[in-house]
Structure formats: structure tokens, C-alpha cells
Design a protein around this nucleic acid. Structure first.
Lengths: 145, 145
DNA sequence: TATCAAAACGCGACCAGCACGCAACAGCGT
DNA sequence: ACGCTGTTGCGTGCTGGTCGCGTTTTGATA
């Protein structure tokens, strides 16, 4: 399930990319860090081990890693994009009130994807942008006001 | 169905906001202009009639109009937000390849919304962010390569 | 192991999209 | 017509991200 840094580095080599310190550290941060890091958060993590790594290096590496299919990015709302390993791709539900992020059950999008495909010929890729709404707690709070 | 500028102006007054030239022009641009204008596009439209209106005025007016429930904004992808009248609110499907924007049929989100509500207590508001994917034409093109 | 082209890096400048503080102005209740 | 206060124009600042440049590093080859 969870990839090791070495496996991801191997993917880099297979893709014809070079393996640098910064790149390895970005991958390490993705494997070991919190669940939905932004580029900024990854930069901070990388800098704890290599303080001179530049922000643009992290951005360019994430771009390259995405091109190789190693990572994907998701927009959870108005702010910065978040990154995770492609092997962990999944849909997101984000609460507009409290900002909580839920991972969507795999089959939640199925009916909608089927409908869009059948009726419009449109192939849904619902992982790139989160679907917003109001989480159970915030909905309950709102009802008690 | 389609609101007139005068009706919208009345909503402004009811909400306790003043009616200014800039505000009236923003509403006019929303009623008469293209379907999914960005703030920038609205600014251009407004300036054809009142060249000195400032960008921040348009942003602030859109914010205020949204607070009053007259307009809503939607994110169709990576770029700027798009605005439309609240009476015309609807879901969007956006093609990641060609950028085409489809208005989603009203019931397309229903099954998904039901599932999210029942299983997670999460109330979907699928209008704020578009759902991305690949449109029929681009999917066909891809298959023929 | 030394060589060397190409890839990647650090750095700074720059961009879009938008928010904000301030002084001047204008809507509208009186 | 007056005056309170919401709104505007303007500049400035912020976030999130891209780009061009000169230098450093990687890793295939000799």
C-alpha cells in the first residue's frame, strides 16, 4: 500500500529524471508527513533537513513528479493546492464552514459519473477538485442556533 | 425567469445597501453579458460605460452582492472565479482538456448528495466548485489517437 | 576515475487574482 | 439643502505560483 521513498525514487529513474537531494526530500516529506500537505508545507519539511532548498525547486519538483504520475495535486478550496502520492488518490469532501476534509468513499461518485457519461458523454474526474458542502457537526450546530 | 436590473437594484435597497453607478453597471453586465464572466471581464464591461471604475470597486461590489444573495461565484478551474445571478445558480462540468463548460442537469448530483448525507451526514453544495472531467469531444479525440 | 552535456538548482523578478487602508465623494433620510 | 455614513478611487500588499538566468550537480561514457 504505502510506497517507500526508494520505490518512488526508482520511478523517477525509470521516467528518465535525475535523483537529487531536494527531490528525495520532497518524496520523504510526502511519505512521512501529514495527509494533505501544500507546497509550502512540503517546503518547510524539506528545509528542516536542507535549509537552502528554494521554494521554486519544490514547485518544479512537484510539477515533474506529477508529470511522471508519482504525485497528484488536489484543490480543497480557495487556498493552496495539496499534494499526495498517486497511489493514495481519492476524492475529497470539504466543509465550507469549518474546513474539515473528509476522504470520500470510493463509490460515492459512481452514480454521478455514470449519469454524466450516459447523458452527456462526459467522463468525470472528480479527484482534482474537492466537492464542498457542510459536514455533519457544522450542520448540527447550524440547526441548534 | 431572468431578472431585470431594476429588480436586482430593489434587492440592493432592501438589503440596506446604497445604489451607485458602479453597482448598477455591475448588475447590468451580469444580466446582459456573457454567461460566466470573471471579475476582470465584468470590469471591462463596466468600463465601456464608466471608464474610471476601479477594479477593487468591482471586487467589493461582487462581495457585497454575494452577501445579499444577489449573485454567487463559482470556480471553474485554476483561474479566476466566475459570477452569475443567484437565480441562475447551477452546477458545472468543466473539461480539463479544452476548458468547455457544461451546465449540469439539475438532478445529476442527487444520488451523490443523498449518499453523502445518509452515509456521512455531509450536506453537499456542489455549485461552488465545478466538477472536472473530459467532455465527449475530447474523449473521442483521445480515443482516435 | 575523470570528463562533460544536460538536467536540476538557487536566486530574484515577475505574474494573476484579490484584499485593504485611507482620504475624497456621493446616496439618501431628514 | 444638509449631513451622516456607505462607497469609491487609488495605491499598496499579500498569497500562490511561474520564469529566466547563471551556477552546480548528476550520471552516462570513456
Amino acid at each position: 500500500m504505502s510506497s517507500t521513498v526508494d520505490e518512488l525514487v526508482a520511478q523517477l529513474r525509470d521516467g528518465g529524471s535525475r535523483v537529487t537531494t531536494a527531490r528525495r526530500l520532497v518524496l520523504t516529506a510526502l511519505v512521512k508527513g501529514a495527509d494533505h500537505p501544500t507546497a509550502e508545507e512540503l517546503l518547510v519539511a524539506v528545509r528542516t533537513l536542507a535549509p537552502d532548498v528554494h521554494a521554486s525547486t519544490v514547485y518544479r519538483n512537484l510539477e515533474e513528479l506529477e508529470r511522471l504520475g508519482v504525485v497528484v495535486h488536489t484543490h480543497l478550496g480557495h487556498g493552496a493546492a495539496t499534494y499526495h502520492l498517486a497511489t493514495e488518490a481519492h476524492g475529497h469532501l470539504v466543509c465550507e464552514v469549518c474546513g474539515a476534509t473528509l476522504e470520500a468513499p470510493e463509490d460515492l461518485f459512481e452514480a454521478m459519473a455514470d449519469g454524466a457519461k450516459r447523458r452527456l458523454g462526459f467522463e468525470l474526474r472528480p479527484y482534482h477538485f474537492a466537492v464542498l458542502g457542510v459536514c455533519a457537526e457544522c450542520a448540527a450546530t447550524a440547526r441548534n442556533d
